[in-house]
Structures are given as structure tokens and as C-alpha cells.
């Protein structure tokens, strides 16, 4: 594992992603998703919305890091908020 040059922050990042995937699997087994249409222009399943949310989060972070003076935690907060909105009403 040493060659992978882990850091605490990336470990937390990947652990979160893994936890999300496991959580989604458990949720899917407990109550299977129904494809539905929210405010997004396409009908989506729960997994679709999570994927969209994560991709959005990546881009939000890139924009904040690259082109704004704001703090990275703000990007994280906005991303989580957006992910929640997407999952609930997307």
C-alpha cells in the first residue's frame, strides 16, 4: 500500500465514497428505487441522482479552487447541500 502514497484527506475521501456506495446498496435492498421525474429534465433513479450530485460536487470544487477566493469548506458545504436537494427533489 505504501506505493499508493495515501494521505489522511484522500483516505477520508475514498472511505466516504465507499460508505456512500455501501449505504446506497443497503438502501436499495431495503427499499428498491423507483425511477421518477423531479426538477431535473430527465427521469432518474436514486443512483442516477447520487452520480449527478457527485459529479456536480467535483465541478463545484474545481470552480471554487480554480477561479474564486472562497474557502474549500464552502465548496464542500454547497456540494453537500446540492446533493441533498438533488436526492430529495431531483
Amino acid at each position: 500500500m505504501e506505493w499508493m502514497v495515501w494521505t489522511t484527506s484522500t483516505a477520508i475521501f475514498f472511505a466516504t465514497i465507499a460508505a456512500l456506495l455501501l449505504g446506497m446498496t443497503a438502501w436499495e435492498i431495503a427499499s428498491p428505487t423507483v425511477e421518477r421525474k423531479g426538477f431535473l429534465p430527465i427521469a432518474t433513479t436514486r443512483g442516477d441522482r447520487l452520480f449527478i450530485g457527485l459529479v456536480c460536487a467535483a465541478y463545484i470544487h474545481l470552480v471554487v479552487v480554480g477561479f474564486t477566493p472562497f474557502n474549500l469548506w464552502l465548496a464542500l458545504a454547497v456540494s453537500i447541500l446540492w446533493l441533498v436537494i438533488l436526492m430529495r427533489w431531483g
Binding site: 506505493w3 499508493m4 502514497v5 495515501w6 494521505t7 484527506s9 484522500t10 475521501f13 475514498f14
Partner: peptide, 19 residues
């Protein structure tokens, strides 16, 4: 995943690296 790890560090070798 390794690429992600590299992207937040300055790696000289596995022991000499800076966040």
C-alpha cells in the same frame, strides 16, 4: 486512487513527500 493521492502532494519518493 493513486493518481488522486499524488494530486494533493509533492512526492519525491514514498518517504519524502509533502502535502
Amino acid at each position: 486512487m493513486t493518481v488522486v493521492n499524488y494530486s494533493v502532494q509533492d512526492v519525491f519518493d514514498t518517504h519524502t513527500r509533502f502535502f
